[in-house]
Design a protein around this nucleic acid. Structure first.
Lengths: 165, 165
DNA sequence: GTAACTGCAAATTCTTTGCACATAT
DNA sequence: ATATGTGCAAAGAATTTGCAGTTAC
C-alpha cells in the first residue's frame, strides 16, 4: 500500500471527507525530507494555492494526526510534523547554539518503549525524543568564545540569539 | 553539595546576580515533586510574594536553564520545568485522552544517548522524551465509546477535549 | 556608583475559533 | 440535500520585550 493510498483510504474509511486541502497538506509532508511546521506547509502551498489558509493547514494536520498518519514534535514553541513510518524510529538533535536540527534514524528506542508499555500499562501511540545540546560545528566555535544561545527552533529562522541579559 | 548550594554557587560563579526572585523560582522547583509551568510557579509564589511577576519567572527560568540547573520539557504548547538531577533519567507519559501525565524514572535512555554522542559528534545537554498514548484508565473507558481527545497538556487544565470536527 | 535585574504593560508568535459560504458525499 | 469543511478575521494562550525604576555587587 503506497503512502498516497494510505491517506486517501484512511480519510475516507474514517468518515472524514477527502478534500483537496487535506491532500495537499499530506503531499507536502510526504514530499518533504524533513519535518515541517504549519507555517512551512502554508508557505509551500501558497505558491500554487494562494487561497489555502493557514487555519486550514492546522485543521488538516489535526485530522491527519488523529488518524495516526503523521506525528507532531514540539521544538521550542512550535510544532513540527512528519509522516509516521512504521518501524522507522526517528528523533531530533537540536543545537541550542545555532538552532540547527539533525534528524536521526535508529531503533534505539524500541526497548525503551517496550519497558514503558510493560511496566506502566500505558498504550503508546507516539514517542517524541528531542535531544538538546551542541552540534559539532558549534562545539568547535565555542572555544573562541560564545556568541549567545538560540531558542530551540528547528529551522533556525528569525529569532535572534539571546544573551544572558 | 546540596542542591541549594548548587544554585547559589552556580549563579554567583557565572556572573549572574543572586536575586531573591531567582532563589524563589529555584526553591519552588526544588520543592515540587512534579514539573511546573511558569504559570504554576508564578501562582505558587504569588501567595507570599504578590509583586513577583510572571515575566520575571520566565527570565529566571531562562537563566537557571542556561546554567544547566533545570530543564524544560514541552508538552502541548507549554513548557514545564524541573531540576536536572545527575544520573536520574526522567521522562513523561502523556495520555492524549484525559491529559494526565506520568513521570517515569529509569535509565533506559543511557544507551540511546550514548549512541547519539558516539555516532553524531553531538554534545548532549538534555534529552527530552515525551511519550503519547493512553493511560490505563482511558484504555478501559475507551471500550465504552470515546468522548474525544485532549490536546496534550500535562496538568489537564482548561482546554476542552477536541473532537474530530 | 553602576551594570544587572525587576515589574509592569504592551507586543509577538503560534494556534484556535466563530461564522458565512462552499463542497464532498 | 446536507453535514462537513474552508476562508477569513478575530480571539486566545504562552512567551518575550521596552522601559523606567530598583538592587546586588
Amino acid at each position: 500500500m503506497s503512502p498516497r493510498a494510505t491517506a486517501t483510504e484512511a480519510l475516507q474509511s474514517s468518515g472524514y471527507r477527502l478534500t483537496m486541502q487535506r491532500q495537499l497538506v499530506w503531499d507536502a509532508l510526504r514530499q518533504s525530507k524533513r519535518h515541517l511546521s504549519a507555517e512551512d506547509i502554508s508557505a509551500l502551498l501558497r505558491k500554487r494555492h494562494p487561497r489555502l489558509n493557514l487555519a486550514t493547514v492546522y485543521r488538516s494536520l489535526e485530522v491527519l494526526e488523529e488518524l495516526g498518519l503523521i506525528k507532531q514534535t514540539r521544538i521550542g514553541d512550535r510544532g513540527y510534523y512528519e509522516l509516521v513510518q512504521e518501524g522507522k524510529d526517528h528523533y531530533h538533535l537540536v543545537c541550542d547554539r545555532c538552532g540547527s536540527t539533525l534528524h536521526i534514524e535508529g531503533d534505539h528506542m524500541v526497548p525503551v518503549l517496550h519497558h514503558i508499555t510493560e511496566d506502566h500499562d500505558f498504550m503508546v501511540s507516539a514517542a517524541d525524543l528531542v535531544v538538546h545540546g551542541r552540534c559539532a560545528k558549534c562545539q568547535a566555535k565555542a572555544a573562541h568564545g560564545g556568541e549567545g544561545r538560540w531558542k530551540a527552533r528547528a529551522d533556525g529562522t528569525k529569532r535572534a540569539p539571546y544573551r544572558a541579559q
